Amino acid sequence: MSYKPLLTKEQKVLLKKKNEVNRRRVEFHRQEWFRYKKFDDSWRRPRGKHSKLRTHLGYRSPVVGPGYRTPRAVRGLHPSGFREVLVHNVNELSKINPDLEGARIASSVGYRKRIDIESEADNLGIHIFNRVVK
């Protein structure tokens, strides 16, 4: 079964651009994340009078800024073009519009209920992003 979202021509162009930019985007790490074990690499804004990262010196890693943001029309969309909806049970599938939205089954859902959700989604024509591998 083929799943294609209903997008405008402009949204298709922007989604293609977003996916291409996301593939090339650098990873942003916290300043000196490699130096101390107590720091994880999740981004923190560099603050400090003598910070080389804050002053954007060229030999340092890139800093998060507004230029890296995706276009508003396709912000929050899955790379396939569907908007993601988190699903915990079969009843929540009835609220999904199959033309615009796809389902992501919550990680807390067990195998048996997951199989039920997937079979019901197939009947309703809803795309599931994290299908169980059989």
Rank of each mutant, 00 (worst) to 15 (best):
N123E: 13
G81E: 01
G102E: 01
K38N: 07
K9M: 08
V13I: 13
L93E: 02
W43D: 09
K37F: 08
N123Q: 09
E101G: 00
R47H: 09
E84F: 08
R72I: 10
L57T: 09
N97M: 12
R45D: 11
S42A: 13
P71D: 15
R45L: 13
F28H: 00
I115R: 10
K18A: 05
P71W: 13
S42V: 14
L53V: 07
W43C: 08
E20S: 10
D41A: 09
R72F: 15
P66I: 09
I96W: 07
K49M: 09
K12T: 15
D40Y: 03
E120C: 08
H88P: 05
E84K: 06
R83P: 01
G125K: 10
S61Y: 11
E20Q: 10
L57A: 09
E32L: 10
N130P: 03
H78R: 01
N97L: 11
E118N: 09
K52P: 06
H127S: 05
A106N: 02
I105V: 00
V132R: 12
K49W: 06
K16M: 02
R83Q: 09
R72G: 11
P71I: 08
R30N: 00
A103G: 00
E32S: 05
P46E: 08
R75E: 15
T70Q: 14
K113V: 15
R45Y: 11
R54V: 07
L124F: 14
G110M: 13
M1L: 14
R114Q: 11
R114V: 13
G76I: 00
R112L: 15
E27N: 06
K16E: 13
Y3A: 02
R44F: 10
V133G: 05
K113C: 13
A73G: 10
G58L: 15
P71T: 09
